[in-house]
Amino acid sequence: MKIPFPFAAIVGQDDMKLALLLVAIDRTIGGVMVFGDRGTGKSTAVRSLAALLPPMQVVSGCRFNYPPAAAGNCGQSCDEEARSHCHDVDTGAVPVVDLPLGATEDRVVGALDIERALTRGEKGFEPGLLARAHRGFLYIDEVNLLEDHLVDLLLDAAASGENIVEREGLSVKHPARFVLVGSGNPEEGELRPQLLDRFGLSVEVRTPSDLAERIEILRRCDAFERDPQTFLAHWGPRNQEIRELIVRARERLETVEVDDAGLEAMSRLCVATGADGLRGELTLMRAARAAAALENVPRVDDRHIRRVAPMALRHRLRRDPLDETGSVVRIERAMAEVMDA
């Protein structure tokens, strides 16, 4: 209903923008958590992401967003009507699905379709947000305020990549592989550690302190509010360029090399910061590769590692409450140790 602000017109906030681009390039990085003050454009940036994503191919009319390859053997029992288009292919936008606060469980995981049951006496499954977000992005604003039982459902689905529904006599299983994007203000409540762990990258946005930047923000917000269409048209070409960057980076991603020295630097970095386990290393490697692909260079080098290490590792450090040092500082210290040697 409301036109999203164009991504290209977002002033500053380079970390957040880069993190979003990286997960758009490589979904396996596993999502972004954006922490930050109110009014820093967190949700604006996430919502603007949809316009950047290259379209995807999907089975026509499919409520589970299956790719064309899965047509006919998806194992779902859709009704005749829904099934009639199963062998057509649509090119559609990659879903960026909003999970609003106050959502109920039945809408998140899906449930019995009441209308069908009442009017036709049929037992049918009405897919929820998890199905809608399959192959796309699931965005939760104020994720730290989300009810616990919903967080549990999300963790389950995010870990297994599928959604299993056993309720009201239904037994449904469908894939739910989505990139989780969250935003929130840590002052309003902590994020559950298990959930934080599901995010590949985490960035912190701050209110810009540079006057020129603040003036530019105000100018663009005002222009956008006055006339969104014109504003959009003005920024359209820039947005298109970014979209092409993503497409090109995706094509290149497979061929980007990480040499042994780079791999070693990354694992030493993880050891030095105490970032837990394999997940940190893997995320760091994938993020660095996506960064190199975005730059259109064939090989990951130190710059890429340095650029992405804070966002890949800062939420994985073991927390020492008595150490006042921010996690980013700790990572930087480790980088100086490991990489400048």
């Binding site: 209903m1 909003d98 999970l99 609003p100 106050g102 039945d106 449930a111 379709d113 009405e126 604003d141």
Partner: peptide
């Protein structure tokens, strides 16, 4: 959120 978006996103009780 409603002030920002000028719309209510409802995903509740079978309604979207």
């Amino acid at each position: 959120t409603v002030l920002d978006r000028q719309e209510v996103a409802l995903e509740r009780e079978g309604l979207a």
